[in-house]
């Protein structure tokens, strides 16, 4: 009963939309009917051209679906049957674009102040502190590195006090170290302000690290896969130790295949028999072992 009450009072972002899209293989209808729990970080995962960014844009109000509804907690943002369409300006979303889309004519501080409803210097200062931008506040975006620009984009998106943060592959252009630290910052923001965060990502380790839930995009449908472990490890194997990784390179040597894998941020080499499954660079793989006990040491 207690659990039932929790479930009942749990606030949700309910999305139920359909939109015709064009992909490289032809026309398809994106059909998304998902509930996203408020306050969590969730991921949209799937191949390119399956509508992840489009759905993000529909939530933001930058694109319109052919039909459907979007309810954010107690508010209706979209209801095509009843002609309700809350314009993007009124939706209170913090959108972080792949290209960052900073305003080049403004300094970092001005970018953040412009995003606020009313100029609030103390909030701007706090944001710049969190993202390590204080010493760069009077610089223009063109003078910053990719990672710094990304931090400004995040700080600017939060400055407008959004109800939902929408991040479109925010870390794809950054190196692993930079990714790691910005991922920590995204997690910190989510904890600090409890803003629901939807992230489009291809990076399995990133999804594992940040997200509590993952929505898988296949051609035309979006499926709630629950916890990231459900999607990436599956129930195919019950190993004692499991990792997911990506194949960086594979070399064939007589009877064996040497795979260079990226597990988390670390590349590792693994030898597999050549007559088994063939692996190509870019394949997502699961590494599991159940025959021995792993040695775990603190570093």
């Amino acid at each position: 009963m207690f659990l039932f009450n929790i479930l009942k009072t749990r606030k949700m972002i309910k999305i139920d939309i359909r939109k015709k899209l064009l992909s490289s293989t032809g026309e398809f209808t994106l059909n998304a009917n998902i509930d996203i729990p408020s306050g969590e970080i969730v991921a949209f995962y799937g191949k390119s051209g399956t509508g992840k960014t489009t759905l993000l844009r529909i939530i933001a109000g930058l694109a319109a679906p052919d039909e459907g509804t979007i309810n954010v907690e107690d508010n209706t943002w979209l209801d095509s049957r009843n002609g309700i369409y809350l314009p993007v300006e009124k939706r209170a979303v913090g959108y972080v674009f792949q290209s960052y889309a900073l305003f080049p004519n403004m300094t970092i501080k001005e970018n953040i102040l412009f995003a606020q409803k009313k100029p609030d210097i103390s909030q701007a200062k706090k944001l710049m502190e969190i993202f390590g931008l204080s010493s760069l506040q009077n610089r223009k975006p063109a003078m910053l590195s990719g990672g710094q620009q990304q931090r400004v984009a995040l700080a600017r998106a939060i400055a407008c006090k959004p109800r939902i943060m929408l991040l479109d592959e925010p870390l794809s252009a950054l190196d692993h170290e930079m990714r790691g630290s910005i991922q920590d910052e995204i997690k910190f923001i989510n904890k600090e302000w409890g803003i629901t965060t939807i992230l489009v990502s291809h990076d399995v380790s990133e999804i594992f690290k940040l997200c509590t839930r993952v929505y898988s995009f296949n051609e035309s449908t979006v499926v709630d896969k629950g916890n990231p472990a459900n999607l990436f490890s599956g129930n195919r194997l019950s190993g004692k130790v499991q990792f997911t990784g990506e194949v960086l390179a594979s070399e064939n040597e007589d009877l064996i295949q040497i795979l260079t894998l990226l597990v988390g941020n670390t590349p590792v080499k693994i030898v597999v028999p050549a007559n088994g499954e063939t692996f190509m660079a870019g394949d997502k793989v699961l590494i599991a072992s159940k025959a021995f006990n792993p040695i775990i040491q603190k570093l």
Partner: peptide, 27 residues
Amino acid sequence: LDTAMVEAARTLGKSKFAIMRKVILPN
């Protein structure tokens, strides 16, 4: 001009007039 820049200003809740004056014209 990057269209995402104008879209970013819209998601920040800015009016068309403010976007024109502060984002489009200066750039």
